[in-house]
Each structure stands twice: as C-alpha cells, then as structure tokens.
C-alpha cells in the first residue's frame, strides 16, 4: 500500500471508529434510559399491590414489567455484563413464582429488580465517580 492510500485508509478507519464509538455512547444509553423508569415504576407499583395483598393487580402489573424486560433482554446482554443481566432475569423468575403463590416476600425480589435496573442505568450514565 503506498503512502497516500495508507493515509486515506487510516482516515477512513478513524472516521468509522469515531462514528461507531459515538453510536455506542448514545444508543445503549438511550435505550436503558427509556427502559429504566418503565421497569422501576412497574416494580414499585407491583410492590405496593403486594404490600396491600392485592395479588391479582400485582400479578397484572408484574407481568407487564416482565414482558418489557424479556423484550429487551437480548439488547441488555449485548451491551451489559451478562452476569448482571442473568441476575436480573433470575430475580424476575423468582418474583413471578412468588407472586403466583401469593408470597409476601415477593416485595424483596421486586426491590432487588429495581436495584439491579438502577445499577445497569448507572453504568451507562456518566458520573464522575464512575471514572475511578
């Protein structure tokens, strides 16, 4: 490859790398920013129903949240540590089973779901303390 061609190839590679990085900064952040409130609010709402032992409503709200998670699970696995996503998946499974047998401890699992979702969001959100 002669000098001019190499410079051209290098410039194109740099531009592509920068564009790809920009996409990776924006897209996962955008998706998780939309998903987090949906999952967190759903989990909080379901927790309120579990506390007041309104099991049918709790199951209804939870199944909506669960579906929203299942929809984005593949995406989450692509951009986040698989162990964190698997942990969230297990928390959903456990919570679903608990609500179906009207187990009041389901609220602890719902709190766990909310925490993991918030943690995933924090990874993608820029915070000074995340740098160190």
């Amino acid at each position: 490859m002669n000098g001019k061609k190499f410079v051209c190839a290098n410039l194109i590679a740099c531009a592509l790398a920068a564009a790809f990085l920009l996409f990776l900064f924006l897209y996962p952040h955008f998706v998780i920013r939309r998903l987090t409130p949906r999952l967190r609010q759903g989990a909080e709402e379901a927790k309120t129903y579990v506390l007041s032992e309104e099991w049918e409503e709790a199951e209804h709200v939870f199944s909506e949240v669960w579906e929203a998670f299942k929809e984005k699970k593949a995406f989450l696995k692509m951009f986040f540590n698989h162990e964190d996503v698997d942990e969230l998946s297990v928390a959903f499974d456990t919570c679903g089973a608990m609500i179906s047998v009207k187990e009041p401890q389901a609220r602890a699992e719902l709190a766990r779901i909310a925490n993991i979702v918030q943690y995933l969001y924090e990874i993608e959100a820029f915070r000074w303390y995340s740098l160190i």
């Binding site: 590679a13 740099c14 790398a17 920068a18 790809f20 990085l21 990776l24 696995k77 692509m78 951009f79 986040f80 540590n81 698989h82 162990e83």
Partner: peptide, 17 residues
C-alpha cells in the same frame, strides 16, 4: 464469555483513535 464483546471493542477503538 460473560463479558460483552463491546467491552473489548470500545477500549481498543479508543486506543486506536
């Protein structure tokens, strides 16, 4: 395999730039 490939791609592209 528990780590997404992007966790390697982003740092390498950053270093390249």
């Amino acid at each position: 395999t528990g780590v997404p490939l992007f966790y390697g791609i982003v740092p390498i592209l950053t270093l390249f730039l």
